[in-house]
Design a protein around this nucleic acid. Sequence first.
DNA 1: GATGAATGAGGGTTCATTCAT
DNA 2: TATGAATGAACCCTCATTCAT
Lengths: 227, 227, 227, 227
Amino acid sequence: MAAHRKTSKPAGGPRKRRAARVPQVPVASPREARGAARREAILAAALDEFSECGYEAARLDDVAKRAGIAKGTIYLYFRDKETLFQELIREMLTPLVGSIEAMGAADLPLASIAGHIADLFMREVYETRRKDVIRLMISEGRRFPKLAEFYYREVLAHIVAAVRALLARAAARGEIAPGLVAFPQLIAAPGLIAIIWNGLFEKFDPLDVRAMMQTHVELLFGAGRKP
Amino acid sequence: MAAHRKTSKPAGGPRKRRAARVPQVPVASPREARGAARREAILAAALDEFSECGYEAARLDDVAKRAGIAKGTIYLYFRDKETLFQELIREMLTPLVGSIEAMGAADLPLASIAGHIADLFMREVYETRRKDVIRLMISEGRRFPKLAEFYYREVLAHIVAAVRALLARAAARGEIAPGLVAFPQLIAAPGLIAIIWNGLFEKFDPLDVRAMMQTHVELLFGAGRKP
Amino acid sequence: MAAHRKTSKPAGGPRKRRAARVPQVPVASPREARGAARREAILAAALDEFSECGYEAARLDDVAKRAGIAKGTIYLYFRDKETLFQELIREMLTPLVGSIEAMGAADLPLASIAGHIADLFMREVYETRRKDVIRLMISEGRRFPKLAEFYYREVLAHIVAAVRALLARAAARGEIAPGLVAFPQLIAAPGLIAIIWNGLFEKFDPLDVRAMMQTHVELLFGAGRKP
Amino acid sequence: MAAHRKTSKPAGGPRKRRAARVPQVPVASPREARGAARREAILAAALDEFSECGYEAARLDDVAKRAGIAKGTIYLYFRDKETLFQELIREMLTPLVGSIEAMGAADLPLASIAGHIADLFMREVYETRRKDVIRLMISEGRRFPKLAEFYYREVLAHIVAAVRALLARAAARGEIAPGLVAFPQLIAAPGLIAIIWNGLFEKFDPLDVRAMMQTHVELLFGAGRKP
DNA sequence: GATGAATGAGGGTTCATTCAT
DNA sequence: TATGAATGAACCCTCATTCAT
């Protein structure tokens, strides 16, 4: 999202003053802001390029071209190609965890939030560049064990735990089959399949993801079946 | 001239006496058999290498080393790297279709064959190199549109049609939610997720695939619910 | 954006003061000059290598070594080996046309300019690297039909036309045999034979090219005969 | 010529008898005849291939295909690619010398044999595969100094001597300019130019070789000029 | 002798990375 | 800080040559 403004101009603000050494996060000096914008532009360009070509086939030359900078500039912001790739994935997946965990904490009937989860997936992932990041993770993850481990520990483990807590409570209430608690992956599977299917076969046989997610939710609660 | 018969058959003569150990079906000359074995060795080595490194990062030099042959030999059997890759995928996925279609034709209660389908997936895919081929298809398919199209038309379309027919009959009998008929992908999703998950995270958090498939099947029929 | 002007001109301002040492004609930036010099170095090295080995046997690695650069640098200036070869020939033969055409336009007794033509050949071709380029054209032309066509249309056709015009006027004046007009190749033949002969046999039996050209010219006018 | 029957069958003759060890040249054993035929077939195929592609780009695989034999068979008759090339040129150019020397010995008015010489060139060279051999010699000779030396000593030197003798006598008789004696190359130049020109530019601007040779001969004697 | 599968050195080309400007 | 020319290791593919059959 925010990571995707291609040439985000430094937003008018405090330009003249040398920004008396604000140390941490907010409101950086113009210099730092410029650098941050560059960095974002490179990440955005890298996402485009990696998504289109895959990690190995992606050329840093083209990343630079997409970002409107020179090839050497990339190395001012990232140690090397691999670092660029890994930081790209890390930064785009990390913020997702928060919303999931929040949802996991809610102690409501599952039926009342299942739709929200599906909706969250659609809005925050499927209709977003994050979809491409997940695709990259799936495609290239095996060759970056460090990245896979990071992704598991920092992202997936949290999501799994949150979903599992949710499922456990729902099972306790008799809302779902208790077996499901052991496999939160079954909750997420259709979302991933949607990303993969449309990534490969959308041209021949596009998948209506929203409808499929809807069916999936209904399935989880036995809706539509004969009592 | 005479020196140019490409597949010189052994000229009718003494066939039976030699045939003490006819190996397989189509009566191959020792030369042809050798060639076929080489081809298989290369394909096996290629699958190892491609699985480990991905298409782009795979080095034909290493494929040759794995197959115990010289680099140039690969080119006696495959035009180039891409052809090797594509034929590898084609040949390993094509034979799968038959068993699926057979299963789709059966007019039995879904409950009685769902377990078979899960079992078929485990035995014919997950516990097989085909799992790796599917992983490759998922990872690299986007960059081989021809291959993706082949895979869709020759493999997936058949499977989807078979499963959909099965589901339609089951829905007509009230065995499953009718909405499911529109999305056979939901049937297959857990299998793919299993391949992906264990491919990436088995070391940290291995997934018990068989158990998950069992849970998935139960879920489809609402088993354990409706208390 | 701004980082991408490919040929950023120095923005009109103070031009004269800096121009204390304008090097050549078109006001090259030092960077451009460096690039042009590299290009020339590569072309020179390529001519050496191609002349010595022929097109196929020439190794770009050796071209680079001769030019004192890395192999990859060649590809910054030429798309590939073939392009390097063709541009080499094109650029060395094109400027030749002008002087020939000028000569063709002169309306003087042939006897008075024949010597000039022979002299032009010696100074502008035979005692020059152009001799090697012509040798390359002769040796490799058949396998580069595009190049042969270029050479014919852009170089030879002009030369042939110019010489033919010259011969036609001379024949009209009765200075030469009229049959010669149809075959300007007869004028040029000894020059080419000189290049070929000394290219192959100079070590065993060197040919005195200047003397031969002299004899050739005399022959054309029947000097020394008619006793 | 003789070297060019593609699959010269052993000509009916003495097949049954084991050819009681005829030692030298004529009527070899069927085995030897077969071998000789193979050899010729290879040479013919090699001439085709080398002419079309040049020495380096020629592939022995294609030579074998043209000759209708297996690749390995070539190595039964020739040590390696270079030997094949050199023997090809040697064997096709050697027999030419005889006729030239015979002509050089004749003590006739040059005018009466000049036409013969031109004719000999047309029939024995230009309308023959020998034209291609000469073209190969011109194109590739520089990279085979041994071959160039052989060609010079065994072929050219003889021809040059013969022609020079002819010219010397003609000059003594006042038939030609005496300067010509020093440069027999001037006699041969148009023939070579014809080979080169039509090899490169026949498609755009074909040269009427016979007519040019005729003009050349006339030129040598001042025919057609005003006295 | 004849075959053609197998070899492996070699060369063209690409591209991540560096560094002088 | 930014540039992009330069580098050179790496990799795909070819093809002369060998050798078991």
